[in-house]
């Protein structure tokens, strides 16, 4: 149990009028102290639901955790009540949301929004909190922090707002920060700055980061390890080099093929992954990627592949890695190009 966070076979479903949507269908991964885990996948694959489950913020009563455990510092968060969750949120786990334009309260001074979390979780006085907030604003790179303190969110640009959101997440020095697509809504240059900031803060404070993204470029920049999610399951996970150099799942190959590479001089075309993810309203019984996979075998349609372990960190769920699979090296090689 040396992992800071360990998610084990997590299953979450949403009940809507037309039936049950199985958003997470057995998600397992872990985050070690001081490292950055990137959770990657297309929209709708369950990345954000995973974050919500960890924070205890799955919309009720439609959504609920059906099975599995979320161990944070050895405690199972799925067993937590509201009060226990409140003691974890903000103080031990901080969260950065996707859209900085809407994740700050428009009618509250920016400073007060940071103060609040300090007063709540560290029992600081208003004055001490203000002091610390101004330090935090400086820390996340907001110049003129003391006058910025009493401004409102609409007086901040998107990138600046995201810095404020990061300051809120950081305020109580949490051990884990969950960043849900923190750069998606931002301009490219601002994206780089925000990622740089996250990296810097992590180094200084030895915080663990669970970075949710659909952008492999972001992953390459900041992550130590990667978990690739597809249709409510983790299909491949491993160290960032392992995933980029030696991916074992056709979906990862697809993702890597669809990333533009700046260094390649060739007029390399981006290869999109054909098709769309399965409907989690009625997930397929076999591998969820089978329908879009260029190498589908009959077994893929019938049975969910188990975990194949390649190294201490690297594992994937794909029948192609089964010894019984045809050693169709050429096909695989062709697919990876």
């Amino acid at each position: 149990m040396s992992h800071l966070l360990e998610v084990d076979d997590l299953k979450v479903s949403f009940h809507v009028s037309s039936g049950e949507i199985q958003a997470l269908r057995g998600v397992s991964f872990h985050v070690n102290s001081g490292e950055t885990l990137a959770v990657v996948g297309e929209s709708g694959c369950g990345k954000s639901v995973t974050a919500q489950a960890i924070m205890g913020m799955i919309p009720s009563p439609q959504g609920r955790v059906k099975e599995g455990r979320i161990l944070f510092k050895g405690q199972d968060l799925t067993k937590f009540n509201k009060k226990q969750f409140r003691s974890v949120r903000g103080s031990e786990i901080g969260m950065v949301f996707q859209d900085p334009m809407t994740s700050l309260n428009p009618t509250m001074k920016v400073g007060s929004q940071i103060d609040e979390v300090l007063v709540k979780n560290q029992k600081l006085s208003k004055k001490e909190a203000k002091q610390k907030t101004i330090e935090l604003l400086k820390l996340v790179g907001i110049s003129d922090a003391s006058s910025r303190y009493s401004q409102y969110p609409h007086e901040f640009s998107g990138g600046m707002r995201q810095r404020v959101v990061i300051a809120i997440a950081l305020a109580c020095n949490p051990e884990l920060i969950i960043a849900d697509e923190p750069t998606t809504a931002l301009d490219v240059t601002i994206q780089a700055q925000i990622l740089e900031l996250l990296k810097k803060l992590q180094k200084e404070r030895n915080t663990s980061i669970m970075l949710i993204t659909h952008d492999l470029g972001v992953v390459a920049e900041v992550a130590d390890r990667v978990a690739i999610m597809y249709a409510g399951v983790v299909v491949e996970s491993g160290r960032v080099e392992e995933i980029f150099e030696n991916p074992k799942h056709p979906y990862t190959w697809g993702l890597l093929n669809s990333v533009p590479k700046l260094e390649s001089s060739e007029k390399e075309r981006l290869i999109p992954i054909e098709g769309s993810p399965p409907d989690l309203f009625a997930p397929p019984k076999g591998c969820p990627f089978a329908e879009r996979c260029p190498f589908t075998m009959e077994v893929c349609l019938e049975h969910m592949p188990g975990k194949e372990v390649f190294s201490e960190n690297h594992q994937a769920r794909c029948w192609l890695n089964d010894p019984r699979a045809p050693k169709n090296e050429e096909l695989i090689a062709a697919g990876r190009e």
């Binding site: 913020m57 409140r86 949301f97 700050l104 509250m108």
Partner: peptide
């Protein structure tokens, strides 16, 4: 979204309701 931010701060429901 900002209600989610407030929730993620560990605030009590009534604090979220009244303040935010």
């Amino acid at each position: 979204n900002f209600i989610k931010t407030a929730e993620a701060k560990g605030l009590h429901t009534w604090e979220i309701v009244i303040k935010h």
